[in-house]
Amino acid sequence: MFRRSKSETTTPVETDATDARAGGKGRPTPSRKEAEAAAKARAKTPRTRKEQMAAQRAARGDSSSKVRQAMKTGEERYLPPRDKGPVRRFIRDFVDSRFSFIELMVPLLVVTMVLGYSGNDYLANVGNTILLGTLLLVLVDMTMLRFRLRRELTRRFPDEPVKGTTYYAVMRALQMKFMRLPKAQVKIGQQLPEHYR
């Protein structure tokens, strides 16, 4: 039933000389050095989802430690995008080189609290007046900071956009100097360099 009939004849298949080598791999055998390098590369690439997640966590931890270190040293390469560039570096140095009334806020707040809880109405009023006067001084200081910074930015960086620079400078100025990140690289009253390129 499934056999060939005797009437069918088989025709021989012609083989070419190139077909004799068709069973080959078509490329030269790699050297031991190349094979070991390929094996190491395959071993480094994570195969399972768990290995991929572990590799991503390790990469994130490494990059975040570099960012933390850059925040302390001011190394430009690893800073976050909002802190990169010569304009942002100049703004940080400009804010850090000037005395700000915000530096007096914490001691004056302590004095105000002591006067407020003294039980004497006159001393409590004096404390409130001191607090209100300090807040007004801080507002005036931030306004002056904005105008001076804009003038310096247009002089030093005429082609750079100034959008967002005021917010960046004010947010930095409203922090105590030892709490600012990236850390201050200049001292109060220090002369700033002319070029930040």
Rank of each mutant, 00 (worst) to 15 (best):
P28L: 10
D93M: 11
R77W: 01
P107F: 11
Q52E: 05
L123N: 06
T45R: 13
L123C: 02
R57E: 12
G85D: 01
Y78W: 13
L123F: 13
P12Q: 04
F94P: 04
L139S: 10
E160S: 13
R146G: 06
A39Q: 15
P161N: 10
Q175E: 11
R27K: 13
F147Y: 13
K84G: 05
T73A: 07
T9S: 14
V162D: 12
R148V: 01
M171K: 10
P158F: 04
L181G: 06
L135N: 04
R60K: 11
A59C: 03
R27Q: 12
L174F: 07
V111A: 14
L192I: 12
K84D: 00
G189W: 09
L153R: 01
Q56P: 00
G127R: 04
T143H: 04
P158D: 04
S100E: 00
V67H: 00
M105Y: 11
Y122Q: 06
I102V: 15
Q191Y: 09
M71H: 05
V126W: 04
K66N: 02
S63Y: 08
F147K: 08
R60Q: 15
M176T: 02
V95E: 03
K177P: 10
G85I: 02
K50V: 12
L79M: 04
T15L: 15
M179K: 13
E152V: 05
H195L: 07
A38L: 10
T165Y: 06
V140L: 15
R42L: 14
R82P: 00
A70N: 00
M53H: 11
Y78S: 01
L181M: 15
D96Q: 02
